[in-house]
Protein backbone atom coordinates (compact mmCIF):
# COMPACT_ATOMS: atom_id res chain seq x y z
CA UNK A 1 0.00 0.00 0.00
CA UNK A 2 1.06 3.50 -0.46
CA UNK A 3 0.61 6.40 1.90
CA UNK A 4 -0.03 8.47 -1.20
CA UNK A 5 -3.46 7.25 -2.15
CA UNK A 6 -6.47 6.00 -0.34
CA UNK A 7 -7.66 2.52 -1.03
CA UNK A 8 -10.68 0.57 -0.07
CA UNK A 9 -9.46 -2.79 1.13
CA UNK A 10 -6.82 -3.90 3.60
CA UNK A 11 -4.10 -5.95 1.92
CA UNK A 12 -1.08 -7.98 2.85
CA UNK A 13 1.91 -5.71 3.52
CA UNK A 14 -0.15 -2.65 4.39
CA UNK A 15 0.57 -0.44 7.34
CA UNK A 16 -2.73 0.13 9.12
CA UNK A 17 -3.82 1.84 12.30
CA UNK A 18 -5.62 -0.19 14.95
CA UNK A 19 -7.97 2.20 16.72
CA UNK A 20 -9.11 1.16 20.18
CA UNK A 21 -10.38 4.42 21.58
CA UNK A 22 -9.74 8.11 21.67
CA UNK A 23 -5.99 8.70 21.58
CA UNK A 24 -5.52 4.98 21.94
CA UNK A 25 -4.25 3.39 18.77
CA UNK A 26 -1.18 1.79 17.29
CA UNK A 27 0.19 0.92 13.85
CA UNK A 28 0.37 -2.61 12.57
CA UNK A 29 1.93 -4.17 9.50
CA UNK A 30 -0.54 -6.49 7.87
CA UNK A 31 0.92 -9.91 7.23
CA UNK A 32 -0.64 -13.19 6.19
CA UNK A 33 -0.72 -15.56 9.15
CA UNK A 34 0.26 -12.86 11.60
CA UNK A 35 -1.61 -11.95 14.78
CA UNK A 36 -1.94 -8.77 16.80
CA UNK A 37 -2.68 -8.66 20.52
CA UNK A 38 -5.00 -6.02 21.87
CA UNK A 39 -6.65 -5.61 25.22
CA UNK A 40 -9.80 -6.92 23.59
CA UNK A 41 -8.09 -10.07 22.42
CA UNK A 42 -6.31 -11.28 19.34
CA UNK A 43 -6.80 -10.06 15.78
CA UNK A 44 -5.87 -12.56 13.09
CA UNK A 45 -4.65 -10.73 10.03
CA UNK A 46 -5.61 -13.36 7.46
CA UNK A 47 -9.16 -13.85 8.63
CA UNK A 48 -9.98 -10.61 10.43
CA UNK A 49 -8.24 -7.96 8.35
CA UNK A 50 -7.11 -8.84 4.85
CA UNK A 51 -9.81 -8.11 2.32
CA UNK A 52 -11.88 -6.01 4.74
CA UNK A 53 -12.52 -2.36 3.94
CA UNK A 54 -10.58 0.32 5.80
CA UNK A 55 -12.78 1.87 8.45
CA UNK A 56 -14.27 -1.53 9.32
CA UNK A 57 -15.06 -2.62 12.80
CA UNK A 58 -13.19 -5.79 13.68
CA UNK A 59 -14.21 -8.05 16.51
CA UNK A 60 -11.33 -9.41 18.56
CA UNK A 61 -11.13 -12.83 20.15
CA UNK A 62 -12.42 -11.67 23.54
CA UNK A 63 -15.49 -10.10 21.97
CA UNK A 64 -14.31 -6.51 22.10
CA UNK A 65 -13.79 -4.64 18.90
CA UNK A 66 -11.52 -2.15 17.22
CA UNK A 67 -11.54 -0.11 14.02
CA UNK A 68 -8.89 -0.44 11.36
CA UNK A 69 -7.93 2.87 9.82
CA UNK A 70 -6.07 3.90 6.72
CA UNK A 71 -2.83 5.64 7.77
CA UNK A 72 -2.89 9.32 6.90
CA UNK A 73 0.31 11.23 7.67
CA UNK A 74 -1.58 12.76 10.63
CA UNK A 75 -2.41 9.35 12.08
CA UNK A 76 1.14 8.27 11.41
CA UNK A 77 2.41 11.27 13.37
CA UNK A 78 0.56 10.14 16.50
CA UNK A 79 1.48 6.47 15.98
CA UNK A 80 5.03 6.39 14.69
CA UNK A 81 7.89 4.88 16.66
CA UNK A 82 9.75 7.78 18.26
CA UNK A 83 13.47 7.92 17.63
CA UNK A 84 13.59 11.62 18.43
CA UNK A 85 11.28 14.41 19.48
CA UNK A 86 8.82 14.87 16.68
CA UNK A 87 6.81 17.65 15.11
CA UNK A 88 3.06 17.38 15.51
CA UNK A 89 0.30 18.29 13.09
CA UNK A 90 -0.31 21.78 14.46
CA UNK A 91 3.22 22.94 13.65
CA UNK A 92 3.32 20.80 10.51
CA UNK A 93 0.20 22.54 9.17
CA UNK A 94 1.75 25.93 9.63
CA UNK A 95 5.07 24.83 8.13
CA UNK A 96 3.34 23.38 5.08
CA UNK A 97 1.29 26.49 4.40
CA UNK A 98 3.97 29.07 5.17
CA UNK A 99 6.53 27.23 3.03
CA UNK A 100 3.91 27.25 0.27
CA UNK A 101 4.20 23.53 -0.32
CA UNK A 102 2.03 21.93 -2.96
CA UNK A 103 2.23 19.13 -5.53
CA UNK A 104 5.50 19.51 -7.40
CA UNK A 105 7.42 21.38 -4.71
CA UNK A 106 11.00 20.36 -4.10
CA UNK A 107 11.86 20.47 -0.42
CA UNK A 108 15.04 20.05 1.62
CA UNK A 109 14.71 19.00 5.23
CA UNK A 110 17.09 18.44 8.10
CA UNK A 111 17.01 16.50 10.32
CA UNK A 112 14.85 13.63 9.29
CA UNK A 113 14.37 12.56 12.88
CA UNK A 114 11.48 10.13 13.18
CA UNK A 115 10.00 11.14 9.86
CA UNK A 116 6.84 12.79 11.17
CA UNK A 117 7.20 15.97 9.11
CA UNK A 118 8.78 14.03 6.24
CA UNK A 119 5.64 11.96 5.73
CA UNK A 120 3.49 15.09 5.73
CA UNK A 121 5.78 16.86 3.25
CA UNK A 122 5.84 13.88 0.91
CA UNK A 123 2.06 13.72 1.00
CA UNK A 124 1.81 17.35 -0.03
CA UNK A 125 4.47 17.47 -2.75
CA UNK A 126 3.43 14.19 -4.41
CA UNK A 127 3.14 13.08 -7.16
CA UNK A 128 5.65 15.31 -8.92
CA UNK A 129 7.70 16.91 -6.13
CA UNK A 130 10.60 15.57 -4.13
CA UNK A 131 11.95 15.63 -0.60
CA UNK A 132 15.67 15.66 0.14
CA UNK A 133 16.09 14.89 3.78
CA UNK A 134 19.39 14.96 5.62
CA UNK A 135 19.98 13.21 8.95
CA UNK A 136 23.36 13.09 10.70
CA UNK A 137 22.47 10.01 12.77
CA UNK A 138 23.11 6.92 10.69
CA UNK A 139 20.57 4.54 12.25
CA UNK A 140 17.84 7.15 12.07
CA UNK A 141 18.56 7.80 8.42
CA UNK A 142 18.45 4.07 7.67
CA UNK A 143 15.29 3.53 9.66
CA UNK A 144 13.57 6.43 7.93
CA UNK A 145 14.47 5.06 4.52
CA UNK A 146 13.11 1.69 5.53
CA UNK A 147 9.81 3.28 6.55
CA UNK A 148 9.58 5.28 3.34
CA UNK A 149 10.06 2.07 1.39
CA UNK A 150 7.49 0.24 3.42
CA UNK A 151 5.02 3.08 2.92
CA UNK A 152 5.83 3.12 -0.80
CA UNK A 153 6.84 6.74 -0.90
CA UNK A 154 10.57 6.11 -1.37
CA UNK A 155 10.49 7.29 -4.99
CA UNK A 156 9.64 10.77 -3.72
CA UNK A 157 12.36 11.05 -1.12
CA UNK A 158 16.12 10.95 -0.93
CA UNK A 159 17.63 10.33 2.49
CA UNK A 160 21.22 11.38 3.09
CA UNK A 161 23.26 10.56 6.14
CA UNK A 162 25.40 13.64 6.65
CA UNK A 163 25.73 16.76 8.75
CA UNK A 164 23.83 19.57 7.12
CA UNK A 165 25.90 22.21 8.92
CA UNK A 166 29.09 20.82 7.41
CA UNK A 167 27.99 19.26 4.15
CA UNK A 168 24.71 20.92 3.31
CA UNK A 169 21.92 19.11 1.54
CA UNK A 170 24.03 17.68 -1.27
CA UNK A 171 21.92 19.48 -3.86
CA UNK A 172 22.10 22.98 -5.15
CA UNK A 173 19.57 25.41 -6.59
CA UNK A 174 16.72 22.98 -6.88
CA UNK A 175 14.60 23.57 -3.79
CA UNK A 176 11.43 25.61 -3.46
CA UNK A 177 11.62 25.35 0.30
CA UNK A 178 14.02 24.39 3.07
CA UNK A 179 13.12 23.27 6.55
CA UNK A 180 15.59 23.14 9.43
CA UNK A 181 15.05 21.44 12.75
CA UNK A 182 18.58 21.19 14.05
CA UNK A 183 20.38 22.44 17.17
CA UNK A 184 22.29 25.22 15.41
CA UNK A 185 20.28 26.28 12.38
CA UNK A 186 22.35 29.43 11.89
CA UNK A 187 25.24 27.24 10.77
CA UNK A 188 23.12 25.78 7.97
CA UNK A 189 21.59 28.96 6.54
CA UNK A 190 24.32 29.28 3.92
CA UNK A 191 23.74 25.70 2.78
CA UNK A 192 20.01 26.32 2.77
CA UNK A 193 20.54 29.29 0.49
CA UNK A 194 22.60 27.12 -1.86
CA UNK A 195 19.87 24.53 -1.96
CA UNK A 196 17.17 27.03 -2.89
CA UNK A 197 16.37 27.77 -6.49
CA UNK A 198 18.07 30.77 -8.12
CA UNK A 199 14.73 32.49 -8.43
CA UNK A 200 14.21 32.10 -4.71
CA UNK A 201 12.11 30.19 -2.24
CA UNK A 202 11.02 29.93 1.35
CA UNK A 203 12.79 28.72 4.45
CA UNK A 204 11.61 27.66 7.88
CA UNK A 205 13.59 26.96 11.00
CA UNK A 206 12.10 25.31 14.05
CA UNK A 207 13.83 25.96 17.37
CA UNK A 208 12.61 25.51 20.92
CA UNK A 209 14.78 28.29 22.36
CA UNK A 210 14.59 32.00 21.66
CA UNK A 211 18.40 32.26 21.75
CA UNK A 212 18.56 29.90 18.78
CA UNK A 213 15.97 31.99 17.00
CA UNK A 214 17.97 35.14 17.60
CA UNK A 215 21.09 33.75 16.01
CA UNK A 216 19.12 32.22 13.16
CA UNK A 217 17.43 35.52 12.37
CA UNK A 218 20.78 37.28 12.25
CA UNK A 219 22.15 34.63 9.92
CA UNK A 220 19.09 34.88 7.69
CA UNK A 221 19.51 38.62 7.43
CA UNK A 222 23.22 38.28 6.65
CA UNK A 223 22.40 35.90 3.83
CA UNK A 224 19.93 38.30 2.30
CA UNK A 225 16.70 36.62 3.31
CA UNK A 226 13.70 38.90 3.60
CA UNK A 227 10.25 38.73 5.20
CA UNK A 228 11.81 37.22 8.30
CA UNK A 229 9.00 36.35 10.63
CA UNK A 230 8.95 34.36 13.84
CA UNK A 231 5.80 32.88 15.28
CA UNK A 232 4.52 30.31 17.65
CA UNK A 233 1.41 28.21 17.23
CA UNK A 234 -0.26 26.14 19.90
CA UNK A 235 -3.16 23.74 19.84
CA UNK A 236 -5.96 24.28 22.32
CA UNK A 237 -8.05 21.20 22.74
CA UNK A 238 -11.55 21.22 24.18
CA UNK A 239 -13.09 18.16 25.75
CA UNK A 240 -16.77 18.04 25.00
CA UNK A 241 -18.67 17.30 28.19
CA UNK A 242 -22.17 17.44 29.46
CA UNK A 243 -22.15 19.56 32.56
CA UNK A 244 -24.88 19.74 35.14
CA UNK A 245 -25.13 22.66 37.52
CA UNK A 246 -27.52 23.06 40.38
CA UNK A 247 -29.95 25.94 40.53
CA UNK A 248 -30.04 27.52 43.97
CA UNK A 249 -33.30 27.78 45.82
CA UNK A 250 -34.11 31.30 46.97
CA UNK A 251 -37.32 30.32 48.69
CA UNK A 252 -40.60 31.96 47.96
CA UNK A 253 -41.54 35.61 47.94
CA UNK A 254 -44.94 35.10 49.50
CA UNK A 255 -45.17 33.12 52.68
CA UNK A 256 -47.35 30.07 52.62
CA UNK A 257 -49.44 29.26 55.70
CA UNK A 258 -47.36 28.15 58.61
CA UNK A 259 -44.02 28.40 56.85
CA UNK A 260 -42.85 31.56 58.56
CA UNK A 261 -40.81 29.62 61.09
CA UNK A 262 -37.23 29.14 60.04
CA UNK A 263 -37.30 25.53 61.14
CA UNK A 264 -40.19 24.89 58.80
CA UNK A 265 -38.37 26.44 55.87
CA UNK A 266 -35.42 24.18 56.45
CA UNK A 267 -37.70 21.19 56.42
CA UNK A 268 -39.25 22.31 53.19
CA UNK A 269 -36.01 22.24 51.20
CA UNK A 270 -35.99 18.54 50.49
CA UNK A 271 -39.64 18.75 49.59
CA UNK A 272 -39.10 21.30 46.82
CA UNK A 273 -37.34 19.56 43.96
CA UNK A 274 -33.73 20.83 43.67
CA UNK A 275 -33.52 21.81 40.04
CA UNK A 276 -30.46 21.75 37.88
CA UNK A 277 -29.36 22.97 34.50
CA UNK A 278 -27.56 20.82 31.99
CA UNK A 279 -25.46 22.00 29.08
CA UNK A 280 -22.76 20.94 26.68
CA UNK A 281 -19.43 22.60 27.04
CA UNK A 282 -15.98 22.48 25.56
CA UNK A 283 -13.70 22.21 28.54
CA UNK A 284 -10.01 22.99 28.47
CA UNK A 285 -7.95 20.17 29.86
CA UNK A 286 -6.17 21.01 33.08
CA UNK A 287 -2.85 20.85 31.35
CA UNK A 288 -1.79 21.10 27.75
CA UNK A 289 1.28 21.66 25.63
CA UNK A 290 2.47 25.21 26.31
CA UNK A 291 5.42 25.30 23.98
CA UNK A 292 6.78 23.29 21.12
CA UNK A 293 9.10 25.65 19.35
CA UNK A 294 9.38 28.92 17.50
CA UNK A 295 8.88 28.82 13.78
CA UNK A 296 10.96 31.30 11.85
CA UNK A 297 10.06 31.83 8.21
CA UNK A 298 11.84 33.85 5.58
CA UNK A 299 11.93 34.39 1.86
CA UNK A 300 14.90 34.35 -0.44
CA UNK A 301 14.31 36.51 -3.45
CA UNK A 302 16.20 36.45 -6.68
CA UNK A 303 18.07 39.63 -5.84
Amino acid sequence: MSFLEYKELIEDGDTAIVFLGHDYMFPVTIQHGSQTQTKYGVIRHSTDLIGKPYGSKVTCSKGGWVHILYPTPELWTVNLPHRTQILYSTDISMITMMLELKPGSVVCESGTGSGSLSHAIIRTVAPTGHLYTVEFHQQRAEKAMEEFRQHKVDHLVTVKNQDVCKNGFGVSHIADAVFLDIPSPWEAIGHAKDALKIEGGRICSFSPCIEQVQRTCLALEEHGFTEINTLEILLRIYDVRTVTMQIPDFGKATEDEGSSESGDTAKQIPASQPSSAMFKSGISPKESVGHTGYLTFATKSLF
Binding site: H22, I210, T230, L231, R236, I237, Y294
Partner: peptide
Amino acid sequence: LLECYTKLREKGGVLNLNLSETWLRNYQV
Protein backbone atom coordinates in the same frame (compact mmCIF):
# COMPACT_ATOMS: atom_id res chain seq x y z
CA LEU B 1 -19.54 22.54 16.85
CA LEU B 2 -20.57 21.20 20.25
CA GLU B 3 -23.89 20.38 18.66
CA CYS B 4 -22.18 18.71 15.72
CA TYR B 5 -20.14 16.68 18.16
CA THR B 6 -23.18 15.52 20.08
CA LYS B 7 -25.19 14.68 16.98
CA LEU B 8 -22.31 12.79 15.43
CA ARG B 9 -21.88 10.75 18.57
CA GLU B 10 -25.56 9.89 18.49
CA LYS B 11 -25.48 8.97 14.86
CA GLY B 12 -22.19 7.06 14.86
CA GLY B 13 -20.02 6.38 11.87
CA VAL B 14 -17.21 8.62 13.07
CA LEU B 15 -14.40 8.39 15.57
CA ASN B 16 -11.48 10.34 16.94
CA LEU B 17 -13.60 13.48 17.15
CA ASN B 18 -11.66 16.52 18.23
CA LEU B 19 -12.70 20.06 18.99
CA SER B 20 -9.87 22.55 19.04
CA GLU B 21 -8.62 25.98 18.15
CA THR B 22 -5.15 27.28 17.51
CA TRP B 23 -3.39 30.07 19.25
CA LEU B 24 -1.03 32.11 17.16
CA ARG B 25 1.56 34.55 18.35
CA ASN B 26 4.09 36.55 16.38
CA TYR B 27 7.45 37.65 17.74
CA GLN B 28 9.78 40.55 17.40
CA VAL B 29 13.25 39.08 17.18
